[in-house]
Design a protein around this nucleic acid. Structure first.
Lengths: 152, 152
DNA sequence: TACTTGGGTTCTATTTTAGAACCCAGCCTA
DNA sequence: TAGGCTGGGTTCTAAAATAGAACCCAAGTA
């Protein structure tokens, strides 16, 4: 049994590639950003993203089909019923991706002195940062990584 | 001076949005994956990704223009000169994004028992995982987050 | 019933991609 | 030097996706 190398993984086997084919779409990523900021409604997304209603509708339904979002009907008194789009657990887990995008943007695209978005720890107000952690809880240096094929 | 809320950031000011407009493109994400796996050459990308040469050429040049990659000419003895495409420091920093995509894929898209890709710590062989860390070095719970507008 | 709100759907033009054919350049060898 | 091989595109046509606007259907209320 020949040992599999990372390069040998087919497109079907590579988690990165699989994820990209699920969410690696500009509009889906932007909608995820909206969801993490707390927006929920069709017109919020539409106004914020400047996307056509047809594309927005398709993308929202794609995200529902893929288990990232679910629709919940609600109604305010004296108003017609509406829908909000909420993250599933699976969709919520993409927060790591969104935060990674944010950190990279803050580091490389946002000028010093300009307002920008950041994630703080709720209880303490402390700034946070994504870090790779090993099994003992220690930090792993970004340059000390090894790719491997494993079986979960 | 009215305090800015995260929701008030314009598209130009939001780091997530800015990053998405830089790299939130399926082909660019896939090319990044290739780069992180160590592939460097036009034909590697072409074979692995099943992308047309025209799109690949455009995307590679886009990534060069945006500072994610640079081209380096090289030549093996007895062969014609070729080009390899290497990550810049800026491009390397997107490793957080790629790892986040990988972790999500491993959690939600790869079946148990199937081979998949993982990141280990080089010196110890220990498994690693992305985690949010606060200023004191402690872990921040994924549900204890607060979005804020700051100035870097 | 008419009107307002809300979430699309349809349509046309434009842009991007898919896939194949074609082309140009760098080297080496006969 | 000519021809061949390798390497990285470029061009072209058809298909798919998007942009942007007009249009439409449904849920409520007055």
């Amino acid at each position: 049994m020949k040992k599999l190398e990372p390069r040998d993984l087919s497109r079907d086997q590579c988690p990165v590639m699989k994820t990209i084919s699920t969410v690696g779409d500009r509009w889906i990523l932007l909608i995820l950003r909206e969801c993490f900021l707390g927006f929920k409604r069709f017109d919020d997304f539409h106004d914020n993203l400047g996307v056509s209603t047809s594309v927005l509708s398709i993308k929202l339904n794609t995200m529902i089909d893929r288990g990232l979002l679910y629709r919940k009907q609600y109604r305010n008194e004296g108003r017609r019923s509406r829908f909000e789009y909420r993250l599933t657990g699976m969709g919520w887990d993409l927060i790591k991706v969104v935060i990674a995008l944010m950190e990279w943007g803050n580091e490389h695209l946002i000028k010093k002195g300009e307002p920008t978005l950041d994630i703080l720890e709720r209880g303490t107000g402390q700034d946070t940062k994504l870090q790779l952690i090993n099994e003992e809880g220690g930090r792993t240096d970004w340059y000390e990584l090894k790719l491997r094929v494993i079986e979960k």
